[in-house]
């Protein structure tokens, strides 16, 4: 039998543990994977290998950071992300002939405009986010294929050798000769995102909206603006990712970015952001993205074939989320 104060103490401790698991649970997973990897191969725990892992998932991470705002605000996911990636990349290539700055700016603006439309329809008119962004993805896909007649476009044919080289090298810059730019952009975005979520009015209000939209509205939060902003940030991140991806593959094409919608959600959820909204943080998303990279790395080092890798990825995903939900519920912080 517990005395009242003891019970309160225990509850406090439980809540604390729960909060900890909620915030950083994914890092337990990373630790497990790191140990596993070290046991499997002596080349695993080298800077080169780990750097490769992060490099390979950096683009996914950039996109995931943006979608996190949408998920955090309780609006599930932005399914128009693949469309934005393809569109902003193609526009950037197309505008390259007017100079690199114009190209990048127009790529970003295109993404922003799609984000604005999403912001208006979901934020203002309260359309269902998944379905609306899905419709947007369909429309973008159709428009892009129609405009470019199903062709892919190349920077050097659009703008000549010099500008093309500048554009193509964008994703190949190494900061300090060692750190790829995609990784730098990703980490910077994580930090900015984390600051936005924790240190600004926007972040606090977004959390409130994610926890309960109605309560947020009643307390006078500008829900329309905040939700809209989340979608705009998501589109912005996707267009940054889209431009970098296009620069990497040297092709503007309507199929660039396929699959990024679901992969981003996978990373976000692994990172402890609840689809119900209002829970999680960017550091967790960073972890979620790294887990995806590490898992692939270890499975390939083990020599597991593609088919079995697919199964393992699916199962690990379910198990991790299950564990997360289960432990949170046991600890008295039910999810959703």
């Amino acid at each position: 039998m517990l005395v009242k104060s003891e019970r309160i103490e225990l509850n406090k401790r439980r809540t604390k543990t729960a909060g900890w698991i909620e915030k950083f649970g994914v890092y337990i997973m990373i630790l497990v994977l790191l140990i596993l990897g070290t046991l499997i191969s002596n080349k695993f725990l080298t800077i080169d290998n780990l750097a490769n892992v992060v490099h390979a998932v950096a683009l996914l991470g950039i996109v995931a950071v943006g979608v996190t705002f949408v998920t955090y605000s309780g609006h599930f996911a932005d399914m128009s992300v693949p469309g934005i990636i393809a569109l902003s990349g193609m526009v950037a290539v197309d505008m390259l002939r007017y100079g690199l700055v114009v190209s990048l700016a127009s790529g970003l603006v295109t993404g922003l405009m799609v984000g604005l439309i999403n912001a208006f329809v979901v934020g203002k008119l309260r359309a269902n986010p998944i379905i609306w962004t899905l419709a947007v993805a369909f429309v973008i896909n159709g428009v892009v294929r129609w405009l470019y007649r199903g062709e892919q476009i190349y920077p050097d044919l659009k703008a000549g050798e010099k500008l093309a080289t500048a554009f193509v090298n964008l994703a190949r810059i190494n900061i300090g000769g060692a750190v790829p730019i995609t990784v730098v952009v990703f980490l910077v975005m994580v930090i900015i995102g984390q600051l936005l979520l924790t240190k600004t009015k926007f972040g606090v209000q977004l959390k409130l909206i994610g926890s309960s939209y109605e309560v947020a509205r009643m307390t006078g939060v500008n829900v329309t603006g905040m939700v809209g902003l989340a979608f705009i940030l998501s589109a912005l991140a996707a267009s940054i990712g889209g431009i970098l991806l296009t620069s990497l593959v040297k092709i503007g094409a309507y199929y660039n970015g396929v699959g990024y919608d679901f992969r981003a959600v996978t990373a976000i959820v692994l990172g402890g952001v609840s689809l119900a909204g209002g829970k999680g943080n960017m550091i967790g998303v960073l972890g979620g993205v790294v887990v995806i990279g590490l898992l692939n790395n270890i499975l390939t080092l083990l020599g597991v074939g593609t088919f079995s890798q697919t199964i393992v990825q699916g199962l690990v995903f379910i198990l991790v989320v299950w564990f997360n939900t289960y432990s949170l519920r046991k600890l008295g912080k039910a999810d959703g």
């Binding site: 599930f76 996911a77 679901f262 959600v265 996978t266 959820v269 609840s274 689809l275 119900a276 697919t310 199964i311 990825q313 699916g314 199962l315 995903f317 379910i318 989320v321 299950w322 939900t325 519920r329 039910a334 999810d335 959703g336």
Partner: peptide, 13 residues
Amino acid sequence: KIDSFIVTLGTMT
């Protein structure tokens, strides 16, 4: 009690 979006994303894979 896991969100169906997540569960079925996992089973899909």
